[in-house]
């Protein structure tokens, strides 16, 4: 078995040795293990993050498989967080995966983590999670997708309701894996940038992604 650093010989020239060392000691919480969460968890595990808390109160459904990359048809009916733990651990990097089979509600306790990652699928829960993260002064990386579009925003002090009003919850938001993968990749990049204190980040900036017209634009938000 290779030592930890040997696994990342191709990655270290990109992010730097010091950053890789930080990832080795970092811990994150991913709320929502659907499309975004599956992809973010996969990327961060393979980046070498030390521990992931994965939160979801749902089981795998056959309509999830086209976009939720951690699950297969054989997993239908099983708890997402348990399957995610099994699949992520198979990467073999000794990442600690902590499954939390729970809905994010007012009494949800955020464990001691470096970043909270919003991969939830409705505005109400996203807003609530941002409030819980702000209470613990933990950076919050929000993302949302809808059809061809999505957005990513990082908050350090404020909550989502300081910046965004979400529409009434859509039961079945239209979604496409290409958009999910792109938005989740940007979220994962943002998490690494925050942990490693890189100068480029999305604190106080909404990055809008549009894969219909191949448009990517940043909008600055005040006081966040």
């Amino acid at each position: 078995m290779m030592s930890y650093s040997k696994y990342f010989v191709r990655q270290i020239p990109v992010i730097g040795k010091a950053c890789q060392e930080r990832l080795k000691k970092s811990s994150v919480l991913i709320a929502g293990m659907g499309g975004l969460g599956s992809t973010v968890a996969t990327i961060l595990t393979r980046n070498g993050i030390s521990s992931l808390y994965v939160v979801d109160d749902d089981v795998v459904d056959e309509t999830n498989i086209h976009r939720q990359i951690l699950y297969s048809i054989e997993d239908v009916g099983k708890k997402k967080v348990e399957i995610a733990k099994r699949r992520l651990e198979k990467t073999g990097f000794s990442t600690e995966i902590h499954p939390i089979f729970q809905k994010v509600e007012k009494n949800f306790r955020i464990p001691k983590v470096d970043v909270v990652i919003d991969c939830l699928d409705n505005g109400r829960s996203k807003t609530l999670l941002s409030e819980l993260a702000a209470k613990e002064s933990i950076p919050f990386v929000h993302a949302g997708v809808n059809g061809y579009v999505g957005q990513i925003l990082t908050l350090k002090k404020k909550t989502l309701s300081d910046v965004l009003s979400f529409p009434e919850d859509m039961k079945e938001t239209p979604v496409l894996l290409q958009v999910i993968s792109l938005v989740a990749s940007i979220q994962a990049m943002e998490v690494v940038n925050l942990i490693c204190e890189k100068p480029n980040n999305l604190i106080g900036k909404i990055l809008f992604v549009d894969l219909l017209d191949y448009d990517f634009e940043v909008v600055n938000v005040e006081d966040v």
Partner: peptide
């Protein structure tokens, strides 16, 4: 955000940048 200003009654001034969107909430 206009939700933290005067909502629809928020006055606009010369040179203001007005950005309008519904955020995506799917995951």
């Amino acid at each position: 955000s206009f939700w933290h200003l005067n909502l629809l009654d928020t006055p606009l001034h010369n040179g203001d940048k007005v950005q309008i969107f519904p955020p995506a909430a799917g995951g």
